[in-house]
Amino acid sequence: MVMNDEGQLYTIEGITAGVIMLVTAFTIFNSGIVYTPGDAHISDMQIQQLGYDALLMMDTPDESVSLSQSSLAEMIQSNDGGGFKTQFNEYLRLHTGTTKVLDSLEFNATIFNRVTNGGAETIHSYHFSNSTMSEVSLLTREPAISVTRYVWLSDANYLNTHLGADEYDNDAQLVLLEVLIWRR
């Protein structure tokens, strides 16, 4: 029996038409979502981890005795925003030289503390430190990433004296350091 080999191009044409219709449908249903590199959050994730790691390093005490002071706690206790800026910038910029991303990070650090003075429990906040703002940052910047760290202060006497009893309890306490980091 001889196979009938007529009309093969017509068959191929039919299949082609089918595929074109499928591609069209696929394109239409996918065109509602547009991914741009900025949406991908990959660099956001890296900046977040970098920030947490930098704060962890700064909040690690020199000695292994429990509740001993870390250098970060000492900076907060003496309200040394300048010292924090130097140290945190140094940690943010540690890299292997393969990328320029890390040299373009800026930050703003705020401290939140619980105040029980006067009976009611409230949260107070104050500006702690920030990086030197470049001119570029005034024009455009990427969205900021927030990283936080609880810091144990064993002595809040200086802060209580300088910021006032309404702003700071004179107790050993935990404060929350919140740092916003962004790429300019």
């Binding site: 959050h41 429990s66 509740l67």
Partner: peptide, 27 residues
Amino acid sequence: VGQTTAESVMEFPKNEVQDLRGKLVSM
């Protein structure tokens, strides 16, 4: 794939929990 991975890493409060845990053990 990059987006969903990065988002789930950022959503998971790993660092907050580790921080809290470290402070409690220390105290």
